[in-house]
Design a protein around this nucleic acid. Structure first.
Lengths: 169, 169
DNA sequence: AGTGAAACTTATTCCGT
DNA sequence: ACGGAATAAGTTTCACT
């Protein structure tokens, strides 16, 4: 048996404490993840070596979790996007739900998956070619699944993104 | 007077026609937008100059719309995310709605904004520090607005992203 | 369209402050 | 932590297949 620990020895594994320069760097890279370090430094009005060290630190500390190309889904042949709200059957076991969600998450049509509290259990953001593909996706991968109670599909007319959030659990 | 044209001269302003190599490049850059061209070429098993020309073409054709750093919102001091469904009052004029949505979109807490059809009129994906900030955001920027009829807030427990979609109207 | 090699630009390290 | 200068690595162009 272990004794009580009066206080964890103030040892935060990672505690970033972003200063103003860090925040500016995050903002610039969120907007243009491929800006050259020289341009980044010029924008910040610091030396390239400083900009570089700061950026590395942000990546190392996990503040910046990655860099990603954003893709025009329409030009990829997926001109229609939708959000599908899904409610699950009350009886489903937790690990069954996790396994099911994991499968949904891997489908190529799925852009994002949100597990939420409230009337729906999760939201799926998909991109497909046309209206019949929306229906097919919902029927095949959601409604027909044994853990799914209901679905509610909303077509997306317009989409804006200010930031790319890191996935989390 | 001009004669009839038996067929429009096959001149689509932009018709990408992605081949298999293009699609692989898009996939790789969607996952790692900062991979070096040398590594990209090695992965594709083509010469660096080829990989480079293909990538440039994808950007020029608008298939790839940008590169963005993804950011851990929690480490930025926004450890709580939510989706807020908003319904608008029936009577609102269209340009008033556009102006209102535009304001919402610019708020620093807003990660994404979806205009949708169905029971809600739009969905706002936000990241804030804590529960009280969710409430404050909804009350201040949504419920109190004259065009808003109802809101429905759902806390996000888990979030997965497979791709970064380009904004669109 | 794809390639290899040259020319150029940028990232990265290191050391001094 | 920051900056300057040297080095290493990468990008970009181009003549040729």
């Amino acid at each position: 048996m272990t004794g009580i620990r009066p206080r964890p020895p103030a040892k935060d594994l990672r505690r970033p404490e972003l200063d103003e320069l860090d925040e500016r760097i995050v903002g610039i890279l969120a907007d243009d993840g491929r800006i050259t370090n020289a341009d980044l430094a010029a924008t910040l009005d610091v030396a390239p070596s400083t900009a570089h060290a700061r950026m590395r630190s942000l990546v190392d500390r996990g503040v910046i979790t990655g860099f990603h190309a954003s893709v025009d889904q329409e030009l990829l042949g997926r001109g229609l996007q939708a959000i599908v709200g899904v409610t699950l059957r009350p009886g489903a076991r937790h690990d069954s739900i996790v396994a099911f969600a994991d499968e949904v998450r891997r489908l190529p049509q799925v852009l994002q998956l949100f597990f939420i509290g409230g009337s729906d259990d999760f939201l799926v953001h998909i991109a497909v070619e046309g209206a019949s593909d929306v229906r097919q996706f919902v029927v095949e991968h959601l409604s027909a699944q044994r853990y799914v109670a209901t679905t509610r599909t909303s077509i997306i007319f317009e989409y804006h993104r200010n930031a790319v959030a890191a996935p989390f659990r």
